[in-house]
Simulated assay, not measured.
Amino acid sequence: MIRLIADENISWRLKELLPAWKILPVNEVKQRERLIDFKIWQYARVNQYLILTLDEEFWDLQNLNSFPPKIIWLRTGNSNTAAIASLLLKSEDLIKQFVGDGESGILELYL
């Protein structure tokens, strides 16, 4: 099963479009304060999630701290949730290979 924690700029509706995937929108993580990027990175590491993001900040964090967690960096511009879901489904085999690859920490996906 693909386990993703979706950064705050990705709609929570993505989990409805991909019900077979384990997608946790970051705003559903129970914390006392808003999760900053480093806390999201730590949460993903401890709980074995891939980070799904549109932002380069996680690339910077991974350069400093290595992986896990692995990052799926969506290079899609301003796309709607349906387009992102479609891209993820088309890339499912690639994502599964990425999960099993011990040498790669970032997978960039383009529309």
Rank of each mutant, 00 (worst) to 15 (best):
I106H: 10
K15R: 04
A6N: 05
L61C: 09
K90F: 01
L87I: 02
L17A: 12
L64E: 09
L109S: 09
R3H: 05
I51H: 12
F58R: 04
I95W: 02
L50F: 11
A20D: 09
L74P: 03
L50K: 04
A20M: 05
R3W: 11
D93M: 10
W59I: 15
D101R: 15
D60G: 13
N65Q: 07
R34D: 07
S79C: 11
S86G: 04
I51D: 03
S91N: 03
G105K: 00
K96A: 13
V26I: 05
R3M: 10
F67Q: 00
Q97R: 12
W41R: 10
R3P: 00
L50E: 01
G77A: 01
W21H: 14
V46D: 14
I71D: 06
P19I: 02
E56W: 13
R75H: 08
Q31M: 08
G105A: 00
Q48V: 14
S66G: 03
I2K: 06
E8I: 12
V99E: 14
I106V: 15
L109Y: 12
L17P: 01
S91T: 10
N78A: 00
V29G: 15
F58Y: 09
R3L: 13
I23H: 05
P25Y: 13
Q97S: 06
N63P: 13
L109G: 11
K90P: 04
A85T: 01
E103P: 10
G100C: 07
A82W: 02
L54W: 10
N78C: 01
F98S: 08
L4C: 09
F58C: 15
M1D: 06
G77Q: 00
A44W: 13
Q42D: 12
G105T: 00
L4E: 07
